[in-house]
Amino acid sequence: MADSTTIRARPVKGPPIIESELLAMIIFVFADVMFFAGFISAYALVGARAPIGWWPPPGDPALPVAAAGGATVALLLSGAAVFQAGRAAKADLAAARRPLAVAMALAVAFVGYQVFEFVRLSSGGFTLQSSANGGFFYTIVGAHGLHAVSAVVVLGWTQRELAAGRLTRAAFSAIRLYWYFVVLLWPAIYTTVYL
């Protein structure tokens, strides 16, 4: 008769508290928040220290508040689409493809508007060197635009990986966090720089 022992199964090691991809993105977003907070604070400070009636400096064009507001709505809708993609992915990762495609289209529209606005303003003489206002405008809005462009590239890569069935849930979480950051940062920039 063979010896036998009865035990109760007990996992000795659970899943990690946080995946490496998500942790890396949290650290990156933390640094990026401070980067933009520094620029936005400097912009607010320079504007507040200017003599009354001298900010924005005379000669600088009025920024297109309404058109940029429309772009803001597009970007916020894009964030909502990524949120919807996250919800759809809970059951099946592949189900996130359609809302991600909507998010990507809206993001491309936002980036396209920014390029159009930069070309229009710079051709009118409002440049990086024309005034402190121009320097801040192109630095802050341009830095955010670069983030949006990189996010569009990452969303495209995500679509490809989803189609191939290679995307991990951790990578998808990190990508969503990055897009939320880009989307939620913009209203802060819009209200500070445009309004």
Partner: peptide, 15 residues
């Protein structure tokens, strides 16, 4: 909460 041992876990027999 995921890794907490449950008293309802079925016994496993090892030979």
């Amino acid at each position: 909460a995921v890794v907490a041992p449950s008293p309802d876990l079925p016994p496993v027999e090892i030979r």
